[in-house]
Design a protein around this nucleic acid. Structure first.
Lengths: 223, 223
DNA sequence: GAGTTCTTGTGACCTGCATCACGTACTCTA
DNA sequence: TAGAGTACGTGATGCAGGTCACAAGAACTC
């Protein structure tokens, strides 16, 4: 249960203070933790399950920024700054979450300098990720390139780390993948078809095998 | 000289501590404060002049994220997290800067809880901006839309706030504008030509007059 | 197992914009 | 004042990828 990793190496007094203000909550799959534009109610420390973070345009177009894993703190920057949540968080598994109300959290930060510093680090990290996102979106990589990057990123996460031919179970639909790399569903389908034709990947049911990691890296890095 | 605004409403002890570790420095126009990928040396508090923040791809393509104005803290997140600077900062005017070495700054944060909280707020802000950038890049607005947004943003900054027909002096070249909205120089030229033809803007020497703000907003918001 | 709904696969078509290749105009500076 | 450098203007061309339309699986009902 020690998955609120950010705070776990704090002095016991701080830990205790955190325990006192957190609300342990469970959410079913598909629940919405918060919506972009809402005034910040507080932070959500994800303990179990995955959460989809996305932003969406008025016309319904959606961009999935990341799939948050246990240990991540959601809604942190909005809670600190008081500005509206800048994205939408929706569970895609049943989730265990520790919620902390904004006022409680701010008081906690004022009282616990160590925690405050941790939060600053955490925010720096988030900013860093956002910068990478900006880079990948802004410097017009082709759709194929971004897909390759995504697959490599997944393969490095899902345990299958450094294997020769990593396998990954495709938990997302083409539509969702399209939303992650900012393209259309059809394009994703076509890209996969192409990768298969070129023997770079191969699909067995719902798992994908990367047959030629080198080639994939080439696509990802290069043009 | 009280332009390091973030810290200026701190208790005097903290202010004093900050004074002790800062190095007041002057940079000429075109100087590079730091480059993306470099290990963080410390923070730069911009007191006077403007600084261009950009990221760039291996192939030389550049994306200008923002033009920092006096009062902003640059290199903050990298300094806090210890990860490499995520972007490049280059002066575009002669600049007055307060520099603080990383170790000094971290110690300062540990000693001054109030300052630490300020930093967290500041980082939240930066994250927020980054999210907006992601939104504008990711949800494929057309080039025209992004240019309109940029012009409106500028007109709301440059004093000329709520005027009927705001004027703004174009300090940037078409090339740079292109890099701000992630398009090509030629496209920017054509877009301006189009806006002029449609009587939406009008240029008098190096100042641009927005004749039809409503129309511009329409272009910006809509499709 | 018949019907519905959700996901994939594919072809046809169209368009925004990058890119190339110029020509022009305006600043420097020597 | 000529020449170099930099910014701007504009046509021609090409293509990545968005959009539409429809077919075929797959996956849940009832």
């Amino acid at each position: 249960m020690r998955v609120d990793r950010i705070f776990c190496d704090l002095p016991t007094s701080a830990l205790q203070a955190f325990e006192n203000i957190k609300y342990a909550t469970a959410y079913p799959k598909g629940a919405v933790l918060f919506v972009e534009g809402q005034a910040p109610r507080g932070i959500f420390v994800l303990c179990k399950g995955r959460v989809k973070l996305s932003i969406c345009a008025t016309d319904g177009k959606t961009l999935i920024l990341k799939i948050a894993e246990p240990g991540e703190v959601l809604g942190l920057s909005a809670t600190v700054s008081g500005k509206p949540y800048e994205l939408t968080a929706e569970t895609i598994d049943p989730c265990q979450v520790n919620f902390v109300k904004r006022e409680d959290f701010l008081r906690f930060l004022k009282d616990q300098p160590d925690a405050c510093f941790k939060v600053a680090e955490q925010l720096s990290d988030k900013y860093n990720n956002a910068c990478h996102e900006v880079r990948s979106l802004g410097l017009s990589h082709s759709a194929g390139e971004k897909l390759a990057k995504l697959l490599l990123e997944w393969s490095s996460k899902n345990g299958e780390a450094a294997k020769q031919e990593p396998r990954l179970k495709m938990a997302l639909t083409h539509e969702e993948i399209a939303q992650m790399i900012g393209t259309s569903r059809e394009t994703v389908t076509r890209l996969f078809a192409d990768l298969k034709k070129r023997q770079i990947v191969q699909s067995k049911g719902s798992t994908l095998v990367i047959r030629n990691k080198a080639a994939l890296k080439l696509i990802a890095s290069n043009n």
